[in-house]
Design a binder for these strands. Structure first.
Length: 205
DNA sequence: AAATGTTGCAACCGCAGCTAA
DNA sequence: CTTAGCTGCGGTTGCAACATT
């Protein structure tokens, strides 16, 4: 599919890129029979041409039965914001307080949804205070730098003093009532060809 | 209808911490 | 003490899907 895949760097035996349904099934079956952990040897023993890291990520972020996919509820949004204000980008820590949510999911959610609102709020404020020409708030990846930098000027482990919300407290981000940011969407991934399949499919099998 | 821009998310990478040898 | 291997974390990337022009 992508560079990642072609880029199979040193070891041509190691597969990269999106997981196939077969690989998912192999991984699920293997873990069902042997349990998880020791990912490198698991990958080998299961016959997957993946790194242990990749297997672990796939299992924890996607295949694990406890993973809840789909909408993040307004309550969860609030919790995420609270915890992020407390801890910054400690996604795994935050994820522990959101059962069924993965750090990756929360991270993505933060970057794609909440940050957008923060950015908007900041722009709005800038417009109010000065008419300075502010360049480039262009592409979607630029916002990430903003957040990560904000959160990571701070040494790990220290308490987080919520710089991200400067000038953008709860109200500017969610002006009136708290409104969910996400449209409803089915709890599965796109399924058009056999590149994508739903978790229901997999667990049914 | 086609081209272009934007968004959401799965997956990869690099680094740090831990532990056993 | 050192080192190698493993795990977990946070940041980043690339692409499909969707929206807009």
């Amino acid at each position: 599919m992508d560079k990642r895949q072609c880029n199979s760097s040193q070891d041509p035996e190691v597969r990269k890129g999106p997981w196939t349904m077969e690989e998912d099934l192999i991984l699920i079956n293997y873990i069902a029979n042997h349990g998880e952990g020791v990912w490198n040897s698991l990958a080998k023993s299961a016959g997957l041409k993946r790194t242990g890291k990749s297997c672990r990520l796939r299992w924890l972020n996607y295949l694990h039965p406890d993973v809840r996919r789909g909408n993040i509820t307004p309550e969860e949004q609030l919790l995420i914001m609270e915890l992020h204000a407390k801890w910054g980008n400690r996604w795994s820590k935050i994820a522990k307080h959101l059962p069924g949510r993965t750090d990756n999911e929360i991270k993505n959610f933060w970057r794609t949804r909440i940050q957008k609102h923060i950015k908007q709020a900041e722009n709005f404020q800038q417009q109010c205070t000065s008419d300075k020409t502010n360049d480039n708030n262009h592409n979607h990846h630029s916002t990430s730098q903003m957040s990560t930098n904000m959160a990571h000027h701070e040494p790990m482990g220290t308490t987080y003093s919520s710089p991200s919300y400067q000038g953008a407290t709860m109200d500017p981000i969610f002006p009136t009532q708290f409104t969910p940011l996400i449209p409803d969407q089915p709890t599965c991934c796109p399924t058009n060809d056999n590149t994508y399949w739903s978790m229901e499919d997999i667990w049914t099998i």
